[in-house]
Design a protein around this nucleic acid. Structure first.
Lengths: 341, 341
DNA sequence: ATGAAAGCGCTAACAG
DNA sequence: CTGTTAGCGCTTTCAT
């Protein structure tokens, strides 16, 4: 019963070979006679031997574990991303451990300085509160891939989305519907809020392109990017009296919160107010009306991130920081198109 | 720069003490003079020493890592659970690694037989496809805590919900509204589908209590528990012609899918059809109408699971399998109550 | 209160 | 093709 204490040498003894041979078999080393291999395999099975990963890791200096650090797992966007990252990592034999930072700066700093030193081979990191300076000050040289944001002259590989272009597309789509008072929900004051800044830039760009005047009263700031913030921001907007006929929310959660407020107050979407979000989370596809949104290539983000990280782990930190850009697409649904067509 | 290679003995040399002393400091051993401790601490800081966890683990036979095995991370219920488990584990200094089984039997078997032997100290497991026999046949003796289901004479600790009672409450609530044709969405044929069976039992119990006849045509089976299944099941129910004025969905995702179908076809909820779900995921609180649901004590589930597991890891596998029951509560919202009050 | 040395289980050199 | 041996970095007796 006490399989916990079966080691290589026990297998070796039973099979009548040396530990090296057993090790060779376990690691699929090529040069082993079929006969020997069979004997060893039998012994392994009989003793229910399982290699001790801690020992292997100690020896090799690698653990096969990577960390995925995200703000919170029950934000649908990050949940989807986590699923994809775990799946992509698995294909390369990597195990994923999750760190939740809550978007809190101190916790993000812990991640940046790699507080799990020697436990993980690398980290895929989606920072929220960290400034580029924080990142640049990073002392640890464990491979890291940054997600979602363009960090100016970043010290690490990163996988980015063209946030400006995507936000522009969404806003232009709203303007293209003939809406003249397009609001934006999701602005943030925080210096670290890159996402917010980029999407705001895209929104403003689009207004200019569409020949619409920018109006500060149509730009609503939020504390966070949850449904509750969206609901509250929409209420603020409606109460402000600054009439609007379309709203671009900087993510789907904000949009779903805004939608709730609109419906609660008896507005018709999209007839009275058209609504667009960002992220393409599944909720949006089942909301009523279904939510028009920017759909980032999430599988691409996850796949490329794991690929970059695996490469870095294998090759050391030789090459310079790389930037990979993934695509996105505007998904037009009922919240802007209406039920027809 | 090469902090990767700083070991205990480097610190010892710099501080002019033995490795043992450094180890004592690192592990907060009591008997170290303040002076020595200060010297060692300074050396640690100067060299940016970080203990090698693989080595420590090898020596101690424990890794401080536990696995959380769930079907999929982007099912909101499991995402919320994961967040809570990670938080609870962190409080005990445990790191969580996530395994996604997809609810696929083979993958669940891998989890049961602990394919990550020696890497994890224990596992919190929410199986979907595994039968009690599968679990009973488990050979590995790594601590395991089962989630969500009552496994008859289980071989492991488990944290359960009173599914039957909860389903009964939800159904009685619908009947209490005066609805006479209460349907159920979420039945499953699969032998392993314990959840489904228990909730169906509760539903049938409630019908009897309410003096309503059971009608097979009102019980709609589903393949899976996603929004798409709920939407399709609702369509099937409506198309069947078996008129119903209320539906109890076995989880919130099914309910949200069903809601989408109802609204799409022009039904009023709850006026035409009242709707109740199970899980209390956040989406339901922002849907229009907001979703009446059974709210399980998720923090309780996560906390108790981690607690049981930590206890088992610390104390060995001495005590018999334990069962902990956590509470739940009916949350009445607009999908049954309507907008008034 | 601190030090010396053994050894956790494995893989990588090097021999044979 | 297979065996021997050293040592990864740490904790843990056992001394002192």
């Amino acid at each position: 019963m006490d399989r916990a204490r079966v080691g290589l040498k026990d297998v070796a003894r039973l099979a009548g070979v040396s530990v090296k041979t057993v090790s060779n078999v376990v690691n699929d080393y090529v040069h082993v006679t079929p006969a020997t291999r069979a004997r060893v395999t039998a012994a392994i099975k009989e003793l229910n031997y399982r290699p001790n990963l801690s020992a292997r890791n100690l020896r090799q200096g690698r653990t096969g574990i990577i960390a995925l650090a995200v703000p919170e797992l029950d934000i649908p966007y990050f949940a989807e991303l986590a699923r994809l990252v775990i799946a992509a990592a698995e294909e390369r034999g990597l195990t994923v451990l999750i760190d939740q930072t809550g978007g809190v700066r101190e916790r993000e700093q812990l991640v940046a300085e790699n507080f799990r030193a020697h436990l993980i081979d690398g980290v895929i990191f989606s920072p929220l509160a960290l400034t580029p300076e924080d990142l640049a000050a990073r002392m640890d040289d464990t491979p890291m891939v940054l997600l979602g944001e363009r960090v100016y002259e970043g010290p690490a590989d990163h996988v980015v989305l063209d946030n400006v272009a995507a936000a522009r597309e969404a806003t232009l789509h709203l303007a293209g519907l003939g809406r003249r008072r397009v609001a934006a929900i999701g602005a943030q004051d925080d210096v670290a809020a890159e996402t917010s800044r980029l999407r705001l830039t895209g929104y403003l760009d689009a207004l200019t392109t569409a020949g619409l005047p920018a109006d500060d009263r149509l730009i609503v700031p939020v504390e966070d990017y949850h449904r509750a913030d969206g609901a509250q921001a929409m209420a603020t907007l409606l109460d402000s009296g600054a009439a609007s006929d379309a709203v671009f929310c900087f993510n789907d959660l904000l949009a779903l919160g805004a939608l709730r407020t609109l419906l609660e107050r008896g507005f018709a979407v999209p007839d009275d107010v058209a609504l667009a979000g960002f992220d393409d989370i599944e909720d949006g596809r089942y909301a009523t009306p279904t939510l028009t949104t920017i759909s980032p290539d999430k599988a691409g983000i996850a796949g490329r991130a794991v690929e970059l990280l695996a490469d870095r782990i294998a090759g050391g930190s030789k090459v310079a920081a790389r930037e990979v850009r993934v695509g996105h697409q505007l998904e037009v649904r009922e919240s802007t198109r209406g039920r027809h067509a």
